[in-house]
């Protein structure tokens, strides 16, 4: 038997793109590829046009505030090869900008609008950038960022019922009151 389709794709991609940071198998039928942000558009173009990755499953974003980076993840599927690619690239969190891929897939627009709204990532070339998608008149930082504290927001905007307004974290409550164990 020759190479599996997964290995074959891996080798092909390595040959074609010298600038790949890393490429690894993430389980059966999964390839996880790390790229530099400048290569992402050409890579996706190549994958779609020449390697039959015709289906865009998802565009997602992971926030890594400790590294000061956003990690944009493109998930592409090739039906003929039965492979799902996870293309990842890290971009600066202060100035998150990336090239839009709306010309390749119409549904990419929706993903990009959502990421713009939820993380504040700007996709250049998407003419609908900045449109309201889910939120309305949002004046806080983009809510899916890790530094947006949803608990604080909830406590500020919503109240526990009157009977429970003294609500405490249970373990703390017990340890404060029970047998004074923490004190010794």
């Amino acid at each position: 038997m020759g190479f599996s389709k997964l290995t074959e794709t891996k080798v092909l991609l390595k040959q074609y793109f010298k600038d790949i940071i890393s490429i690894e198998e993430g389980g059966e039928q999964r390839l996880i590829i790390d790229l530099q942000s400048k290569d992402i558009t050409s890579m996706i173009n190549h994958l779609k046009d020449f390697m039959d990755f015709k289906h865009l499953s998802m565009i997602s974003c992971v926030d890594w505030p400790e590294e000061n980076k956003f990690e944009i993840v493109y998930i592409l599927t090739s039906y003929s090869k039965n492979i799902v690619l996870m293309l990842k690239t890290k971009i600066d969190r202060k100035n998150p900008k990336l090239q839009s891929i709306m010309s390749l897939w119409p549904q990419a627009v929706t993903y990009e609008i959502e990421l713009n709204e939820m993380f504040g990532v700007f996709f250049e070339g998407n003419d609908r950038m900045g449109e309201e998608f889910i939120l309305e008149d949002w004046d806080d930082i983009p809510p899916m960022r890790r530094d947006f504290d949803s608990l604080e927001y909830a406590n500020k905007n919503f109240k526990f019922r009157d009977e429970r307004k003294d609500k405490k974290i249970i373990r703390e409550f017990i340890s404060e009151h029970y047998d004074e164990w923490r004190k010794k």
Binding site: F173, I174, H177
Partner: peptide, 29 residues
């Protein structure tokens, strides 16, 4: 022990003193 309230993802459970005395293996809550 408060495990029920700690795992509750909706913060629906509180521990209250309903009159049981604490002892070595019982917080009384």
């Amino acid at each position: 022990c408060g495990s029920c309230g700690t795992i509750c993802e909706n913060d629906a459970i509180d521990m209250v003193n309903v009159g049981f005395d604490p002892n070595k293996a019982d917080t009384g809550f």
